[in-house]
Amino acid sequence: MKKKYNIAVSGLNAIDSPGPGVAVIRALREAASFDVRIIGLAYESLEPGIYMHDLVDKTYHVPYPTTGIENLFKRLEHISSIEKIDMIIPNFDAELYSFIKLEKRLKEIGMHTFLPTMKQFEERHKHNLPEFGKKYDLHVPRSEPIYTVNDLYRLPEGIEYPLVVKGKYYDASIVYNSEQAKSAFNKISAKWGLPIIIQEFVHGTEYNVTGLGDGKGNTISAVPMRKQYITDKGKAWGGISIADKKMLELTDKFISQTKWRGGFELELMKDKKNDFYILEINPRIPAWVYLAVGVGQNIPEALVNLAMGEKVEPYKTYDIGKMFIRYAYDMIVDIKEFEQISTYGEL
């Protein structure tokens, strides 16, 4: 008989700028090596995943990371006392810090995770990217944190217009002159604080890789993708799996150098000379992970098995030229369900 795991998954916001939760759950439901009961973790009452009863068995509200680790832990402890959760897969950027901090305590109450270490999580931050590149010998665009508008007039060597002005956590705009840069600086710093990162703009084509590292330097999975259709929010609405040896080599190098643990997504730019730059490292499974599943690499399944201490054979192949095409779907939901989740915090 197959094992059965109770797995808690967050990021059920399958909206136009989607969280990865629903895709992760689909992957887990198709896992060959185990059966699952899925516990959804939701921050808001209208996250679509809450109402997808064929995918999610039960959903609980969890407190925002801003209310502190203690509150989150207490809530998870309570949920686990009812559901006996074996594994948690957090999928929001903003909650990762808290879950990484809680890793040991969660394990003590029987909940496994498979997350990057705090060091890995911190090192790959946007404002640390140049040092990250140097340390691990990875190609990254030149960038520098700046603290005042005046710093825009003293651009470091190798950075010239156009350049990218980026916020500490989110937001980025491409600017073509100092006026635009100033305005972007002010807008982004008002929202996300300082520093602002100015980054060399690399002309080229964007590619993505999703993968999974075992924490010992081995690549368990890696699937490269080219976005085919991008929404006005910059999200892929369609993409295709590709065969690019260079991208796979780069991914292997990233994993072996950093000993990356857990799922990740690399945002890459290929310039005119066919060199790849790492633009960003997302320390979690991306929303388009179901493409990886569809081409033969079930990343969430492997991630669960790694967390549970099972032996996991690395995926070596995948189908090339398979596409994912995202679509929106209207569910019909009774207000009773909305009442349940919003007043009792459970559905």
Binding site: N13, I15, G19, Y43, E44, S45, L46, E47, P63, Y64, P65, T66, T67, N71, F92, A94, Y169, Y170, S342
Partner: peptide, 17 residues
């Protein structure tokens, strides 16, 4: 009013105890 927001990056803070 029950806010029907999607998760934003800045949730409200509640001090519980």
């Amino acid at each position: 009013k029950l806010e029907t927001n999607m998760p934003n990056k800045f949730g409200t803070k509640t001090e519980y105890t």
